[in-house]
Design a protein around this nucleic acid. Structure first.
Length: 483
RNA sequence: GGCCCUAUCGUCUAACGGUUUAGGACGUAGCCCUCUCAAGGCUGAAAUACGGGUUCGAUUCCCGUUAGGGCUACCA
């Protein structure tokens, strides 16, 4: 009975996908999937001056990476294309023309200079700056003649002088705005491109968008859009204006105060699952105490009713924790595939898959980012090049050389080099030497890894293998001596 | 300046008039575990911006104040 749910994400190609943009896209996507509807990607490139080369592709790549796949859009034609506004110009012209004919829009010949003067004067007089409607009442025949004569012009919509408009927002409830505070918005610019306001209304209607889910920055221009729907005689979509994402100082999330591009987080070692999970929770929650969700689980639970109204600070600490949680949910194999290329970048080629898997298992609960695997455990794959200096001073005492040397001998003689046996050897030696096991453990870890922190020592030794352990132990003695 | 939106721990949030000594999570402090670091377990500190109403009863409804944000372009 009810019409098909169709939603869209409509970014302008001015750079990389912003995490706020990802959240908007995600909510649209979740809503569509939940309702069995369609999610459309539309590129809003009506501002020629802000166009950035390659932005569309990078936007699509980021969306694709995060798993927020669109059903229709560039490279994925549905029945409503094209999905790039610069390829839809005739559509906008046709509709603008219709408005002109009905007297709901008019040609405006004001120069940018005049507009600026008017604005300056209004500001000086402490009046709200707005277009003075200088061209609103030029007789249609007269302005048509000027247009034909080739005079520079724009097309503006005629906003009623009195009255007010109330509309229902799915998130905010009733919103009322007086017509008089609405400008006679430019609909078609002098370069013949439509402005956002015309293009968004025409496209949302033509693409049969049922729910307009977008950022709160559009809330105050929604009345203009609704007026346009009324002028065209079209049914209104439902509107849902999402709260903004904020910097730690509560201003609108921006570069300058940290990373905002999805790509930044991806390259730092955040999982797509974590980014999606985190961003979903900025303004929405399932109503109970669960926090770790997969995309599929989000689809099952998402609802616009549970979206909040106030802005949310993008808090990296929590993202880190969520990333940790998702890393643990990955299999060692999955993680290995992600870690391999990172190790490769560091010049480490992994030949033994099983070995890598075991190293990952040992590190899994100790990392926050995928990058950490390569960062904190390179010693599994190559000789430690440097030894933590503070650790050396703290754990490498005068007697340590002989102790480690003795340990190396004992281990070399060990037949079955597994962690239980290793532990037995280490503890027995400590007892014989009448020292605390820690006196052997810490310098051993330092010698083997160059670090003072890491996974359980016995497990680590087992994985490294007897040859490597004995060799590194003896090498370390040499290196420490030389200092 | 005008218009619109918003307002619970530092942060993300729960509570849809009473079951609340306002719950959870991140972070933070302490303790436990322990070879280190994590992880895990336990405990603690930490919030309803303020002022009026409405009501037998307000975090919850209404009004005002304050604060923050958004918009106010031939940008989206």
């Amino acid at each position: 009975m009810s019409a098909q749910v169709r939603v869209r994400f409509a970014p302008s190609p001015t750079g990389f996908l912003h995490v706020g943009g990802l959240r908007t896209a995600l909510y649209n996507y979740l809503f569509a999937k939940r309702q069995g509807g369609k999610f459309v990607l539309r590129i809003e490139d009506t501002d020629q001056s802000r166009k950035v080369e390659g932005a569309v592709e990078s936007l699509i790549a980021a969306l694709d990476w995060s798993g927020v796949h669109y059903d229709e859009g560039p490279h994925k034609d549905g029945a409503f294309g094209p999905y790039v506004q610069s390829e839809r110009l005739p559509l906008y012209h046709k509709h603008a023309q219709q408005l002109i004919e009905r007297g709901q829009a008019y040609y405006c010949f004001c120069t940018p200079e005049r507009l600026d003067q008017v604005r300056q004067k209004q500001i000086a007089m402490k009046l709200p700056p707005s277009y003075d409607r200088h061209c609103r009442d030029i007789p249609p025949e007269q302005s048509a003649t000027r247009v034909v004569a080739g005079e520079q012009h724009v097309i503006r919509m005629k906003v009623p002088m009195g009255g007010e408009m109330t509309f229902e927002d799915l998130i905010r409830g009733k919103v009322t705005i007086a017509h008089k505070v609405l400008d006679d918005q430019v609909l078609v610019k002098s370069d013949k491109f439509p402005t956002y306001h015309l293009a968004v209304v025409v496209d949302d209607h033509l693409m049969e968008i049922s729910h307009v889910i977008r950022g709160e920055e559009w809330l105050s221009s929604t009345p203009k859009h609704i007026l346009l729907y009324q002028y065209f005689g079209w049914n209104l979509p439902q509107f849902a204006h999402l709260p903004l994402l904020l910097n730690p100082d509560k201003t609108k999330l921006s570069k300058r105060q940290g990373d905002v591009a999805v790509e930044d987080y991806r390259s730092k070692g955040y999982l797509k699952e974590a980014i999606v999970n985190f961003v979903a929770f900025l303004g929405w929650n399932p109503g109970d105490e669960r926090e770790i969700f997969s995309l599929e689980e989000l689809i099952k639970e998402f609802s616009l009713e549970r979206v909040g109204k106030s802005g949310a600070v993008f808090n990296v600490e929590k993202l880190n924790w969520i990333n940790q949680q998702h890393i643990r949910r990955k299999t060692d194999k999955e993680l290995a595939e992600m870690v391999k290329p990172i190790l490769m970048q560091k010049g480490i080629a992994v030949s033994n898959e099983g070995y890598l898997l075991k190293a990952i298992a040992l590190m899994k609960e100790r990392v926050t980012l995928v990058q950490d695997f390569a960062e904190f455990s390179s010693y599994f794959f190559e000789e430690p090049k440097v030894f933590d200096e503070a650790g050396r001073q703290k754990h490498w005492e005068a007697e340590t050389n002989q102790r480690i040397s003795a340990l190396a001998d004992e281990l070399e003689a060990l037949k079955d080099f597994n962690h239980q046996n290793i532990e037995t050897v280490v503890k027995a030696l400590a007892e014989r030497l009448q020292i605390k096991t820690a006196k052997l453990i810490h310098p051993t870890r330092l010698a083997l890894s160059g670090r003072t922190v890491g996974p359980g020592l016995y497990e680590m030794m087992e994985l490294l293998g007897k040859e490597t352990v004995v060799r590194r132990l003896r090498n370390a003695i040499q290196m420490m001596v030389r200092r």
